[in-house]
């Protein structure tokens, strides 16, 4: 059934086969023509159509009608206005993109106005501190005075000192 329908469609396409190759834009049509290219019937049809099309091109154009084919366009090109230009989708899209890029630049500039030397490191430390979770911390149950040894051994942190008067204080976790 599908085969019959496909053959019928191919026959229909061949009956509408273009006279000149410039009208051959359709893939289905190209395929139908390539299948029938060798058939005598199709060649006769093409010759017939070409002869009729040649005759049509010989139809003379009366002088009064030919006046319409003057060099200047019948409709002058529309005048250029700001309003019209702004309504053009391409211009609109470009304007929005430029505005967004400008916005990003301004935001970056304003956010760097309050920078100071070492602000990048400070920002990094704050970032790490903000992302730290309680589970990542080991509870310590010891006297404050022993913390300098603990930090040195565990994290290589030197120069951590607790004033002597607080050395006996117990850590709180």
């Amino acid at each position: 059934m599908k085969l019959v329908s496909a053959m019928r469609r191919q026959r229909s396409l061949l009956n509408c086969a273009p006279i000149s190759a410039r009208q051959l834009a359709d893939r289905a049509m190209r395929s139908a023509i390539s299948r029938a290219d060798d058939s005598v019937e199709f060649t006769d049809q093409q010759n017939f159509d070409s002869a009729v099309a040649r005759l049509v091109r010989l139809i003379p154009i009366p002088a009064e009608s030919a006046e319409w084919f003057s060099e200047k366009d019948l409709v002058p090109a529309s005048r250029w206005t700001w309003k019209k230009m702004l309504r053009n989708p391409a211009v609109l899209a470009t304007s929005i993109a430029v505005a967004v890029i400008a916005g990003v630049f301004v935001f970056n500039f304003v956010s760097h106005l309050n920078d100071f030397p070492g602000s990048a490191t400070a920002r990094k430390l704050l970032g790490i501190a903000a992302s730290a979770r309680p589970v990542m911390l080991d509870p310590v149950n010891a006297e404050a005075g022993t913390l300098s040894d603990l930090f040195f051994m565990k994290h290589g942190l030197e120069h951590y000192d607790v004033p002597a008067q607080f050395a006996d204080f117990a850590t709180i976790g």
Partner: peptide, 12 residues
């Protein structure tokens, strides 16, 4: 339309 040889079949 067909013998004008101006349009392809979809346009016709």
């Amino acid at each position: 339309l067909f013998y004008l040889d101006e349009f392809d079949y979809r346009e016709i």
